[in-house]
Design a protein around this nucleic acid. Structure first.
Length: 285
DNA sequence: CGTTTTTGACCTGCGC
DNA sequence: GCGCAGGTCAAAAACG
């Protein structure tokens, strides 16, 4: 734990969201130590990017984060199409796009020998990551998507293991990692990697996220699922639509501290409207 | 019986 | 080069 305090330059890859005590409250629970730990998630943790969720509460601050209201937000969109968004990082870990050829890294069909990739795939490309810290008793928070666990590892210096999940939807290679903070075991750190290329499955074993968001809070399986978290997912989901329609440059709104809000303006009248409460959508604009 | 979880082995990147 | 830690695979087990 000592060695982790190297100040690396954050760049446009990883986002740290605030956590909330639960979906009914908006009080932030921020534990910097845990945050640091969250940063350690990534072997490439040179890339961290704060997010401004102006309609979702305050931005988490952290010595590593270098919060800058003018910095482009997030993200998630990043490695897909816009090389510009990778600005600032010294072509480190994210220089090639393995999704270019197919969907992904280590799909099960890929033989190990290929994986070793002598020569070919130099560095494995990583998707954008978003980390949430959530106060929750359960580790695997219901988020509307279906996940299959594909691994679990013990985490150094932590009594709690880290679990690895993959979205079960075909061709969707979104992954997430879940681990409990050893500093505060009540906090679950969930890291999403990649973007869903599909909508939230309607065949959920429970109410849709949207339902939940639109006022049935406290009911159903998602009760433990924090609102920020849900909101991110909703936006993440709709980003797919957004891209499909607008596939270009709306994201570049410098000076606006909330790209999300900007984004929301774009998708506001689409599907999102059906599932996200309007006040939430309007809040920022 | 199909799907998901478990878990040990293996691979990769990094620091020394 | 070696060892460590993180990440993934894949066979077997468990589950519904």
């Amino acid at each position: 734990m000592e060695d982790q305090v190297e100040h690396k330059n954050p760049s446009l890859d990883e986002v740290i969201f605030a956590s909330v005590t639960d979906c009914l409250q908006s009080s932030l629970v921020m534990d910097y130590n845990s945050l640091e730990k969250a940063f350690k998630f990534s072997p490439y943790n040179s890339s961290l990017q704060p997010i401004s969720l102006t309609n979702m509460g305050q931005v988490v601050n952290h010595p590593y984060l270098n919060l800058n209201p003018n910095s482009p937000i997030i993200s998630s969109s990043s490695n897909e199409a816009d090389p510009k968004e990778n600005v600032g990082d010294k072509n480190g870990p994210m220089e090639d796009h393995n999704e270019g050829d197919q969907h992904g890294d280590g799909e099960s069909s890929k033989p190990l020998s290929t994986k070793q990739g002598k020569g070919k795939r130099e560095k494995k490309e990583r998707e954008a990551r978003v980390a949430f810290m959530t106060k929750s008793e359960v580790e695997h928070l219901e988020d509307g998507y279906r996940w299959r666990k594909y691994g679990q590892k013990a985490v150094k210096n932590s009594p709690y293991p880290r679990s690895y999940y993959r979205c079960t939807t075909q061709k969707c290679n979104v992954k997430k990692r879940v681990e409990r903070s050893f500093q505060d075991p009540s906090i679950v750190i969930t890291t999403y990697e990649g973007k869903h290329n599909h909508l939230i499955p309607s065949t959920l074993r429970g109410p849709l996220v949207g339902e939940h968001l639109s006022g049935h809070r406290g009911s159903g399986l998602l009760h433990s699922f924090p609102r920020y978290h849900q909101e991110f997912l909703m936006m993440n989901q709709h980003h797919v639509n957004y891209q499909a329609v607008e596939s270009t440059s709306h994201r570049q709104s410098h000076g606006n501290s909330s790209n999300y809000s900007n984004h929301q303006q774009v998708v506001d009248y689409g599907l999102l409207q059906d599932i996200v409460p309007s006040k939430l959508l309007k809040h920022e604009s």
